[in-house]
């Protein structure tokens, strides 16, 4: 009973309170932050880099950096702004490094287009029929492909806006642009997605 109440109280604590506790030496609070953000982070990073293994590596690196910086932590920005800024920078670096590597490879051999296919993934969901699963999978691949085809900054903006539901001022700080520029960036990104995913969009509107 007492344990349960403690957990509930802990869950109600804000990110900033938890981080201040971590700063004061309470590693239990770090565990709570980890539990709160590991899934959103892994998914954000997976959608940025499209490789689940790399996404997990990067998510761990984000947590490690948060932990390392705990002594200097000052709640001058929202915790999520800070964390997703680290994550976004790591993801962008990883994408750029990977592109360099791909270019080096393609100098020697022609790249196999099949290499870019997304890997089979572990889905946290119920148990639909095989047909439903295939349809859902195809849709998911289409969406993922379209999101991934966006320029990096637009991709990050869409993911932070649509899936993390961060405030405009947070996303603008993460991407280092003005809020107005961010809104235009999102407009252009969604306009591209609207065209790329037209069959899906129209099927919803019909």
């Amino acid at each position: 009973m007492k344990r349960v109440r403690q957990d509930v109280e802990a869950m109600a604590r804000t990110d900033v309170q938890l981080m201040l506790d971590v700063k004061a030496g309470d590693d239990q609070s770090f565990e709570l932050l980890l539990r709160r953000y590991r899934t959103p982070l892994v998914n954000f990073l997976y959608r940025m880099v499209r490789d689940p293994g790399v996404a997990e590596e990067l998510a761990q690196e984000v947590f490690l950096r948060v932990y390392r910086a705990r002594k200097e932590y000052a709640p001058s920005a929202k915790f999520t702004t800070w964390m997703f800024r680290i994550a976004t920078n790591l993801a962008l670096n990883s994408v750029r490094d990977n592109r360099h590597r791909q270019m080096e490879i393609s100098m020697d051999h022609s790249v196999n287009p099949g290499d870019d296919d997304p890997p089979a993934m572990q889905v946290a969901d119920g148990a639909p029929t095989i047909e439903q699963e295939m349809v859902a999978r195809t849709r998911a691949e289409m969406i993922l492909k379209a999101v991934h085809a966006l320029p990096e900054k637009q991709r990050a903006a869409v993911l932070l806006h649509k899936y993390q539901e961060l405030d405009y001022d947070e996303i603008a700080r993460i991407l280092e642009c003005s809020e107005s520029a961010l809104k235009s960036l999102l407009f252009r990104a969604y306009e591209t997605l609207r065209a790329e995913l037209a069959p899906l969009v129209n099927s919803v509107r019909a």
Partner: peptide
Amino acid sequence: VMEDLPVLSPS
């Protein structure tokens, strides 16, 4: 439509 993206669980 974009809601239909599956959510990956960390390993």
